[in-house]
């Protein structure tokens, strides 16, 4: 009997439409574009700050434009979503075993959310928001 296995190719660019879970994965990965773009944005801000008071004023002015606000909003949503997927992943990457039992996964992820909230409050406080 002949052996002639049939190989089915995976479509290299459209594979993630095949499954909702692949779409979820892609949406997580795409958030990194926004996170990266926002980092560039911060670097530009630093550069403007170094260039002197008038350059900095101009930068602050540009921040209030509608396009800039829309971008910052999208970047915030993407960063929050990305952070949530990251925290949810910590329970898989860093299981904690005590004796024979494992600490429940949501405790590990939960601890990260708590640390996130605490650090955010500290940073907002240091930044003089309240």
């Amino acid at each position: 009997m002949s052996r002639r296995p049939l190989v089915r190719e995976v479509p290299p660019t459209t594979w993630y439409f095949r499954q909702p879970r692949y779409m979820r994965y892609m949406s997580r990965e795409i958030t990194s574009i926004f996170v990266g773009a926002y980092c560039m944005f911060l670097v530009v801000g630093l550069q403007r700050l170094a260039a002197g008071p008038s350059a900095w004023e101009g930068f602050l002015q540009a921040l209030t434009s509608p396009a800039s606000i829309v971008f910052q909003f999208l970047a915030l949503v993407a960063a929050v979503y990305h952070a949530a997927t990251w925290f949810n992943a910590t329970q898989k990457a860093m299981p904690v075993q005590i004796g024979e039992d494992f600490v429940p996964g949501n405790v590990i992820s939960g601890a990260h959310y708590v640390a996130w909230a605490v650090l955010s409050v500290v940073i907002l406080h240091l930044a003089g928001v309240f």
Partner: peptide, 16 residues
């Protein structure tokens, strides 16, 4: 992607 762990019938959780 995490798909392995979602489909594993033996709850092995390969992704972890």
């Amino acid at each position: 992607v995490g798909a392995c762990s979602e489909v594993c019938p033996a709850h092995v959780d390969p992704a972890s």
